[in-house]
Structure formats: C-alpha cells, structure tokens
Design a protein around this nucleic acid. Structure first.
Lengths: 227, 227
DNA sequence: CCTACCGATCGGTAGG
DNA sequence: CCTACCGATCGGTAGG
C-alpha cells in the first residue's frame, strides 16, 4: 500500500543510505574508486550517449589507470548494470519523494504524480535512464541486485494502482494490467523526450513534464467522449 | 483523412516502389551494393544489437572490401539513418496494410488496429525499430529524406485521430495532442517488449500484441470507473 | 570497387 | 592500483 506513512519510512532509509556517498573530486583511490567510476561513466553517457562508454574512458576520467577498474567491473556490461541499478534506486526515491512533496488527497492524484515524476526523472537523469533501458543491461537483469532494484521501482507504481483499485477510483481490472498500461504511456513519453522525438514532431518539448501531465489525465479520462 | 480509398491508393504506390528491390544473395557489386549493405547491416543489428554495427562488418557480410561502402555511406551514422528511413517507410506501409486488411467499420476501430500494428511491427522488425529510435539517428533527423519518412509515418496516426475526432468518437481535443498520447502508449509498449522488459516484469510476453490490444482498449475507455 | 597501408581505441594480461 | 606490453577492431587514405 502506498500510504504516507510507508512513503515517509521508505524515504528515511533511502536518504540515510545515500548520505555516505558524498565525495570530493579527487582523493578516491582508496575505497571510493567504485563510486568514482560510476560518476565518471554517468558523465560520459550523458555527454556522448551509451556508445561512448568504455572502461578505459571511465578509468581515465576517474583519474586512474585503465587496468584499475578491473577489480570492480570486469566488463563494460557490468559498468552499465551498476549504473542501471543505481538509476532504479534513484528513480524509486524520486517517485516516493514527489508523492510525499505533493501530498495528494486521492489515490488517483498520487498516480498522476507518479506518472509526471517518471518523465521528470528520465529527462533530468538521461544518463541513468539510458543505461536502465539499454539492451544488454535489460537482458542480464537476472543479475540479482539489479533485478531487485527494478522490481522495487515497479512496485511503487503497482501499489499506487492497487490503492486506486481498492478506493474504487479505477476500473475493476487486475492492478498489474492497469499498471502496465500506465507504465507504457509514461515510459513511451520519456523515451520520446530523451531521444528528442517530441521536438522533432513539433511538440513544445521545452517542458515534457507538461506533456506528461496532459497525457496522464488523458489516460484517466479515456479517449471516448463524455456520455 | 484515412479513408479506404486513400489507403488503397497509398498501398499501390508503396508496393510498386518495393518491387524492384528484389535481390539474390550474391551478385551485388554493380548497382545493388547499397541495398546489400542495408540488408547486411539489418542482420547485424538484429543479431548483436546496435553497438555491433560497423562499416567493416557490413562490408564483410555484403562480400565487399571495407573501403567499398564509402561511396554510399560515409559514416556508420549514415548507415543507421538509411536503415531508419527504410524502417519508417516499412512501418507506414505496415500500418496502412493492417488497416486495409481488417476493414474497420468505425474510425476508433481503425485507431486500435494502428496501435496493435505498431507494436507488431516493432517486435517483428527489431533491427529496423532499434535503428529508428537510436540516439544519433533521431538527432540527425533534420536530414531531409529521413525527416520526410518520419513525418509520413506519424501522419497516419494523426489522420486516423482526426477522423475519429470528426466522427465525434473521441473527446473534443486537438487531434495532435490525442495522437501524442496514443503514440506514447504503443511506443512505450513496443520499446518495453523489444527490450524484454515485459517478460522480466512477469507479463506473458509470448504475445506482446495481445498486451497492445488490451492497452489500446484501456486508453479508449480510460482508467476511471464507469459512471 | 580492391589492396595495402596508417593511427587510434579498446579489452586483456604479466609483473610488480 | 600502476606500467608496459599484446592482439583485435575500427575509420581513413593512397593509389590503382
């Protein structure tokens, strides 16, 4: 269930976990190399796209030799999976935080906030988002820590939908199926925004979040005219 | 407008254009190299993902030296754009064909068929689909022949939506905005299916097309319970 | 459209 | 975690 108390409890643990990842730009090399490599990789992906990432570039930007990453990441795929896992945790935290901030009154309002927050996360963390849905990462998702992070992020949506269902605010259908449709909508919007397809099609993508607001409302109301 | 007559006229021109692309496996090298390179590239992308493509591999699989492609494709990006352009034309043809085959009675039925056909195209032409939405291709979409192909494919959806609007079968809102929501939904579903995210989340992705059918209906009915 | 080069980049390994 | 190697791959170019 997605009640305010569960949200606040979850937020607390998320925040305390991310508190000790603070870092200075230099002075890694002893225990923080893994995080330094992740930060460097994120910059590379955000700048040059997923294909720009290599172990050597990440090592170079982190200020270590190209053989150093081996202990932490055996292949580029491992690096991607680690970025993705981090991304799913940040996504979950972002979703919970937005719901807590907006203090929704009805479950459906919470659902709409989640949808908008999803697109918001994608456009403001393109490096993470691209890694999370990179082919090869998604294939190896059986990797346990990643799979768990994915599931916990998706559960936020499913639980919100279940809450709507119990309150009778959505159609009587399996919450997971309804959640899939909602996920597909915002995910499609997010992908199109990150890939600049919206601006190419002439949509005012100065603010994809506004488009997300309209689309989520559209999903709730349906295409059919009012009776 | 998306009437049966316009669809049939469009189909005719599409079919006659694709008739002269027939080819044997060998015997390129004189005029058909460009198509041979496209075919080879498509296989490579379908097998090993977008990152597996290089000019040298495409040349090798097409049976020519690695310097040969230069005349047709200066960079790998050009190769991707050509695949994408071909993909958009095939997508448009596929959409029109499915509508013509199903012979819908109402405009909304045509709309639903388009949505299902979109997902169907993505899952049955993953190589094309990945190229069409590859970062770098989508950025360079100002390239004229590609941009035109993209626009013509998107127009199929917009025109179908306008038809619904005029028949009073959808809510009174700008057709382009309604079309964006519909596009986002099926595009999200397609991307999730191609990236194997659906099976990872425990959805019966033996048939993503069935999921598309449910989701498009969900978009029409809306999430709200019947009044 | 081919052969024969080139410099750059990458992942991998030995040895410390 | 570093230096110093290695083979493989890639895009690019000269010259025919």
């Amino acid at each position: 269930m997605l009640t305010l108390s569960t949200i606040r409890a979850t937020l607390k643990s998320v925040r305390s976990r991310s508190r000790d990842t603070r870092r200075g730009r230099k002075g890694y090399h002893h225990g923080r190399l893994r995080q330094a490599l992740l930060d460097a990789s994120l910059e590379i992906v955000a700048e040059g796209g997923p294909s720009a990432l290599s172990l050597r570039k990440a090592a170079s930007r982190a200020g270590v030799s190209h053989a150093a990453p081996k202990r932490h990441f055996a292949t580029v795929g491992d690096l991607y999976c680690a970025i993705a896992e981090d991304g799913y945790r940040k996504l979950r935290a972002h979703l919970l935080e937005r719901v807590a901030q907006s203090d929704p009154v009805t479950p459906v309002q919470a659902l709409a906030i989640l949808g908008v927050a999803y697109v918001e996360f994608a456009t403001s963390h393109p490096g993470h988002f691209r890694a999370m849905f990179h082919p090869g990462v998604t294939d190896r998702a059986a990797s346990h820590p990643l799979e768990q992070a994915v599931g916990e992020a998706f559960d936020v949506l499913v639980e919100a939908m279940e809450h709507c269902r119990q309150a009778g605010e959505v159609r009587p259908a399996p919450p997971r199926e309804l959640a899939l449709g909602a996920w597909a909508l915002v995910h499609g919007l997010a992908v199109l925004a990150v890939d600049h397809q919206l601006v190419n099609r002439g949509f005012s993508s100065d603010d994809p979040v506004a488009l997300a607001r309209e689309s989520t409302q559209q999903l709730y109301l349906g295409l059919r005219p009012d009776l």
